[in-house]
C-alpha cells in the first residue's frame, strides 16, 4: 500500500472536474446541471488545497474561501432563475426552453 500523496489528490480532482463537465453537457434537468457545475467548482477547490499544501503557501486556502462564497451567491441566483423557469413552463428540463434559435 503506497501512501496517499499529491498525485492522488490531483487525479481525484481531475476526475471530479471531468465528471462535472460531462454532467453539464449531457444532463437535461436544470438542477442536475447546476449540481454538475458545483462539482466542477469543488474539483477546483480540491486542486487549490492540494497545491497550497504541497507548495506550503496560504494563498490557495484563501482562494478556496473566495470560491465557496462566490458559489453560494451563484447558487442563490441560479436557483432563483430555475424557479422563474418553472413558473413559465412547469418544468425544469432545459430542452423545453428553446424560444430563441439560429
Amino acid at each position: 500500500m503506497s501512501e496517499v500523496g499529491v498525485g492522488h489528490y490531483l487525479t481525484l480532482s481531475a476526475i471530479l472536474f471531468t465528471i462535472g463537465a460531462i454532467g453539464v453537457l449531457t444532463r437535461k434537468n436544470a438542477i442536475i446541471v447546476f449540481m454538475a457545475i458545483e462539482i466542477m467548482l469543488n474539483a477546483a477547490n480540491l486542486a487549490f488545497v492540494t497545491f497550497a499544501m504541497s507548495i506550503g503557501d496560504l494563498g490557495g486556502l484563501v482562494m478556496v474561501l473566495f470560491v465557496i462564497a462566490v458559489a453560494a451567491a451563484e447558487a442563490a441566483v441560479g436557483l432563483a432563475i430555475i424557479v422563474a423557469m418553472y413558473r413559465h413552463r412547469e418544468t425544469v428540463n432545459v430542452e423545453a426552453f428553446t424560444a430563441m434559435r439560429g
Partner: peptide, 23 residues
C-alpha cells in the same frame, strides 16, 4: 428568463474552467 438560464449555466460552466486553470 431563457436568456438568463443560458447565460447562467454557460457562465458558471466557464467559471469552472477559469478556476481550474487558475489552480
Amino acid at each position: 428568463v431563457e436568456g438568463a438560464l443560458k447565460y447562467f449555466v454557460l457562465g458558471a460552466f466557464s467559471t469552472g474552467f477559469f478556476l481550474y486553470g487558475m489552480a
